[in-house]
Design a protein around this nucleic acid. Structure first.
Lengths: 152, 152
DNA sequence: TAAATTTACATGTACATACATACATTTGCT
DNA sequence: AGCAAATGTATGTATGTACATGTAAATTTA
């Protein structure tokens, strides 16, 4: 769907302004699309994100801060997301012996199973973006990096 | 900041996968950046969005459904966003005489003032994206449209 | 016209975000 | 060593999202 149709407007100040709205809308579109997969697995995007990060270090444990620093949206909410994963027994939480302020988190076998199952479905889902080539993706990545280069 | 640094990883399946994460991250980056302006005006992005939509029709009233259909993130939450705007006297709510199911909303003078003040600050803020040209924006818009073209 | 369906909105719940604050532990400084 | 500052995490509140459900009014259908 074209942005003009999605927002029912053609009033964009310039291409740059349209691009910012386009990014916000496309992000929303991607999230909505992926969240159907998450829902099938009784998990949220954020919970999936945390599991994915933990899997990358498994079988090492990670502290809350390290998890937070790897998330797409920096969340002050990591402890509460972990709460929900603990209840579902997808992760395991202990207190660090080296630094008693730290909470150490490890993904469980159950967590890995769910993660792998979900990732497979996400990949299937992403295959639907078939019009979009690797060259397009390259170019898009370059443009987004350039956009984020702000004058300090 | 490069995506690799923001997410502290270099493990992307391919450029396409990286592009999806890049969009999600850039959207978050944009929102965070703009929300500092919103905060200065004691308003949220969503409330700003609703005011902007209402201004486009002023002095006409709009029903909740029409407002929702123009929002970047389709929200089941429009009535509650309006609640907050009503409390701040930035909009005015009445029931339609033609169709008593409809709630009609109009932006107030106070709402217009706040919107214009905020928009000015947002524009100033967007000027900081100076590395990004109109040609870049054009290309980005085209790529995002192409990404959203899903095989049905 | 009466009944069934649809529409427009409101509301309840679970989860998430942003921000402020609290609290314990560790680190740095003198 | 003792105290101040920094750090890591948790939590409270207001706001927002997604989804399910409720309710009244309008529209369609029989």
């Amino acid at each position: 769907m074209k942005l003009e149709d999605a927002l029912k407007t053609t009033k964009f100040k310039d291409a740059k302004h349209k691009a910012t709205l386009n990014i916000l809308y496309t992000s929303y579109w991607l999230k909505s699309s992926i969240s159907t997969v998450m829902k099938d697995n009784s998990i949220t995007m954020e919970q999936y994100n945390v599991l994915r990060i933990l899997k990358g270090k498994h079988p090492e444990r990670m502290c809350v801060k390290d998890i937070g620093s790897r998330m797409i949206e920096r969340s002050s909410n990591v402890p509460r997301i972990i709460d929900r994963l603990v209840v579902k027994k997808l992760v395991d939480r202990t207190i660090s012996k080296e630094d008693k302020r730290e909470t150490l988190i490890m993904i469980t076998a159950k967590g890995i199973d769910l993660l792998e199952k979900t990732t497979k479905q996400v990949d299937e889902h992403e295959k639907r973006l078939s019009a979009f080539t690797e060259e397009d993706a390259q170019m898009l990545n370059d443009l987004l990096e350039k956009l984020r280069q702000i004058a300090e």
